[in-house]
Amino acid sequence: MMTNSRQLASTFSLAGLALASCFMLPANAAAADEQYAKAARNYDTYCAQCHGINRNGRGINSRDMSVQPRDHTDAKGMGDIPENEILKVIKEGGLAVNKSVLMPAWGNVMSDTEIREMAAYLRHVCNCGSGK
């Protein structure tokens, strides 16, 4: 009897945890969406033309490009790029970090704050931490 009620209690608490996590996951996702909303909007405006609406490097302009745009969902490739290089390449363009001229400088469009937000958003997209 004792065991049964303990079992019942633990079943209930497990169910409770599962239920709670169901509510928590979307809440976290929604919070993340809100946190990155501005950067995502900037991404859709400036980056998606080459890096793609799915952030996979297959944008509308990528078909005829001699160097393919980076896949921002690639955790390994993105994780290897140091933070300061990400900030520099967005602000000053590919040539500034010995990469392709096809990546232009966005420093005249996005502010330094927006570029920092974009770098953080890219870490969120690649799910590859905060860099080195």
Partner: peptide
């Protein structure tokens, strides 16, 4: 080719995004 603003007229394709 992708209208104005391009981002409103793009969808994912089999290889790359398409108009």
């Amino acid at each position: 080719p992708a209208g104005e603003l391009y981002a409103r007229h793009v969808k994912g394709g089999t290889k790359e995004d398409v108009v």
